[in-house]
């Protein structure tokens, strides 16, 4: 199982000849410790929130709104520690496989960042531009980020899909989506 994952993490840079290079390789090998840090931070956050809550004395029942968050917060701290021990002992989470997934290749961060950016742009644009336009931009942008470069076909598919979905949800299913200025004109 661990051999499976070693391929996804980029190969460590040879032997740790120089001290900083060795440390970087070690960190890369143990990047899962980042998950522990996040779990730890989450635990601290949940506990702080629970402990700073001002609870009415007249809370109903013996168990107030703080008990469960405190339990979850302690659980998070515990699990962060246990996971850290597991990682330092050489345990590794197995990266998930799938039919379109090639774990032999290093992760393509550019595509992921581009997709996240396109998605964020949609969140910003959906209210001023309306769903048909923002949705079409989302589809085209995502397809572009994923490597599709058919300038004749991609925008057309995006526009048809977006307008059809708008019609289906807004008019047939009765789930309102913002039409934006475009639908105002039509």
């Amino acid at each position: 199982m661990t051999s499976h994952d070693n391929r996804t993490a980029e190969e460590p840079t040879g032997k740790p000849a120089a001290e900083p290079a060795g440390r970087r390789a070690w960190l890369r090998e143990h990047s899962e410790l980042g998950v522990c840090v996040l779990l730890l931070a989450l635990g601290v956050l949940v506990l702080t929130d629970a402990l700073t809550m001002d609870v009415d004395i007249s809370q109903r029942g013996p168990v107030g709104p703080r008990t469960v968050p405190i339990a979850i917060g302690i659980g998070l701290l515990l699990i962060a520690a246990l996971l850290a021990v597991d990682v330092l002992r050489g345990g590794r989470g197995e990266a998930e496989g799938g039919e379109d997934i090639d774990l032999a290749e290093p992760a393509d961060w550019r595509t992921v960042l581009l997709l996240a950016g396109v998605f964020l742009a949609t969140a910003v644009l959906i209210d001023p531009l309306g769903f048909p336009v923002a949705g079409a931009l989302l589809f085209w942008g995502a397809a572009f980020a994923l490597g599709s470069r058919r300038l004749d076909r991609d925008p057309l598919i995006a526009a048809v899909l977006s307008v059809a979905t708008y019609g289906l949800f807004n008019n047939l299913l009765g789930v309102p989506l913002p039409g934006g200025p475009l639908m105002g004109v039509l």
Binding site: E96, D100, I101, A107, D108, T111, L115, A116, A145
Partner: peptide, 9 residues
């Protein structure tokens, strides 16, 4: 989708 995008075959 993001995970597949990072490792698209």
């Amino acid at each position: 989708a993001l995970w597949i995008a990072a490792h698209l075959r």
